[in-house]
């Protein structure tokens, strides 16, 4: 079986909700039914075959070609299989994802991996703001799984994050790890202002000294035993995080945000 491939015919005029095109919903559907699936685009409903040329049959291996930043909700609540996006993805990529894998060979919009529960998302370009965050008004962001960003991430990475790993090879914007409840965010590049703002618990693992709020306190330099194990768990990734040369266990530890619960930590490589 070949991958079930959706090739975008034309740039849509409005944003498109692609949440119906996930592995678990397409498994067992005939090509005719898949072609007839209705996708919301602005205030209109479009047939899937109006937007995409559809080929292949393996619904556990979905490929979206010619993708643009107007395709939202790709892989929403995905429970199994793999979705590969050739091009950019819009907002809410992998929202509430429960398992499986999403690979984006391009950039993604805001709220990628928001409220994700399990599985893996690999973004080979840049990620927009609110990566792994909670939706507006909600109190829990990402609850599990791993997000790997090979480029840069926007502002508010991991806002309200509860569990899981966000790995960023590039830079992260302002308010990285804001209001985090737990989990791990690792940034190999630089971070913006207000790193760890209102952080309650959780770990920010940084390669560069951040601009921390005054409410983070220096806890000194330490050798932490869990770090080699954490890095070892990244071994299977196609990433700089899997490179043994990138690993370390010696860090400067900053505790905070003392204006909040103060049980979070920012670990900076030394």
């Amino acid at each position: 079986m070949t991958a079930l491939t959706f090739t975008l015919k034309l740039e849509p005029a409005q944003r498109v909700d692609l949440s119906p095109l996930v592995c678990q919903k397409l498994t067992g559907l005939s090509p005719v039914k898949i072609a007839a699936l209705e996708l919301y685009s602005g205030k209109r409903k479009l047939r899937a075959d109006e937007l995409f040329a559809i080929e292949g049959s393996d619904a556990q291996d979905i490929v979206i070609k010619n993708s643009t930043a107007k395709l939202d909700y790709i892989g929403k609540e995905l429970t199994e299989g793999q979705i590969t996006v050739e091009g950019d993805a819009g907002a809410y990529l992998g929202q509430g994802m429960k398992n499986g894998t999403i690979i984006v060979n391009g950039n993604t919009g805001i709220f990628s991996a928001c409220e994700m529960k399990k599985g893996q998302i690999e973004i080979n370009g840049n990620a927009g703001d609110f990566l792994g965050a909670a939706l507006p008004g909600n109190k829990m962001g990402m609850k599990g799984g791993t997000v790997l960003v090979k480029g840069n991430a926007g502002e508010r990475v991991g806002d309200h994050m509860r569990r899981g790993n966000i790995l960023i090879e590039g830079n992260a914007g302002d308010y990285c790890g804001s209001r985090m409840t737990a989990g791990t965010i690792a940034v190999m590049g630089k971070t913006g202002r207000y790193t760890g703002y209102a952080m309650r618990r959780g770990t920010l693992l940084l390669w560069s000294q951040p601009d921390l709020p005054a409410t983070f306190n220096d806890c000194g330099s330490h050798t932490l035993a869990f770090l080699p194990m954490l890095f070892a768990s990244f071994k299977g990734f196609d990433s700089k995080f899997a490179d043994p040369a990138a690993t370390f266990n010696r860090v400067r530890r900053y505790g905070g945000d003392m204006a909040e619960m103060g049980r979070g930590e920012v670990l900076v490589r030394i």
Binding site: G144, R163, L230, A232, E265
Partner: peptide, 9 residues
């Protein structure tokens, strides 16, 4: 209360 949980692998 200062203990930290980490889910690894």
């Amino acid at each position: 209360g200062f203990q930290i949980s980490k889910v690894i692998g």
